[in-house]
């Protein structure tokens, strides 16, 4: 039994013209696995992520996270589930401008009304791991994008979630910061054994995964596993992308 089980998942958006965004997806992510989801714009990868994030509901099929089905929960229960079991990293960081970096990071714990001692300990541990100790008392607009994303990763992992979901975490970063952020994610995956699911356009980011799943027009298209060499894996991903959609550079553009 995997940490994340997706069974026969479909999503249809009803409108004047119904669109089938996802069709019959089956995917299992094991405990401690780091999986990337790739695909062209409109392929359905964000829809898939939203469904796993529990912020959208499937039309048919089932999602089990840690053997629980979040889509059967009530709204308030669901919010609690999200903040206890899941961690989120977004393209635009989603940090609050009114709070300091430290306050942003402890936010999930504060909402749970944890003790100050516990919050301080966890904050210290996670900040050291991600190398953001010196910016803890700064404001979000006083630090760089890479630092902001690391703070967001700290917030997403401070409560030790069973599943970390990342939506284009490198989408708004320069290549150096991207590399840095991905290394941090890899490190957390290795040391804490956190299961991770990453949705991205960026082959470099995807090359840090154990496995990359490709989606095309709402269906699983292919998947490739990483061997020993990350450089080799990066090349494989590029090849796969150009095979999938034609030109490589067309796909590496920032997602709109």
């Amino acid at each position: 039994m995997g940490m994340l089980e997706i069974q026969k998942l479909s999503k249809i958006y009803n409108g004047k013209v119904s669109t089938r965004a996802l069709n019959n997806i089956d995917l299992t992510i094991e405990q401690g696995e780091f999986v990337g989801i790739m695909g062209a714009s409109g392929s359905g990868k964000t829809t898939l992520l939203n469904m796993v994030s529990t912020i959208d509901t499937p039309s048919s099929g089932k999602i089990l996270i840690n053997n629980q089905n979040p889509h059967q929960m009530k709204k308030n229960q669901l919010a609690q589930f999200r903040r206890r079991q899941l961690g989120f990293v977004f393209q635009d960081f989603n940090l609050l401008d009114t709070l300091t970096i430290a306050e942003n990071i402890v936010l999930p714990l504060t909402l749970e009304k944890k003790s100050l001692k516990e919050m301080d300990e966890k904050l210290k541990a996670v900040a050291e791991k991600l190398g953001i100790v010196e910016i803890l008392n700064k404001r979000t607009y006083e630090v760089s994008g890479g630092q902001r994303q690391r703070a967001a990763i700290a917030r997403a992992t401070i409560h030790s979630p069973v599943l970390l979901l990342a939506d284009e975490p490198t989408g708004a970063l320069d290549s150096k910061s991207s590399r840095n952020v991905m290394e941090m994610m890899e490190k957390i995956n290795q040391t804490d054994g956190t299961t991770m699911m990453l949705v991205t356009h960026d082959p470099l980011a995807a090359s840090y995964c154990h496995r990359v799943v490709f989606i095309k027009d709402g269906e699983l298209y292919n998947e490739i596993h990483r061997g020993q060499n990350r450089q080799e894996f990066f090349q494989e991903i590029i090849d796969m992308l150009s095979f999938l959609g034609g030109n490589a550079h067309e796909l590496s553009a920032v997602r709109v």
Partner: peptide, 8 residues
């Protein structure tokens, strides 16, 4: 944003 990370 807060809702996504679990504000009920």
């Amino acid at each position: 944003g807060l809702s996504k990370i679990g504000l009920s």
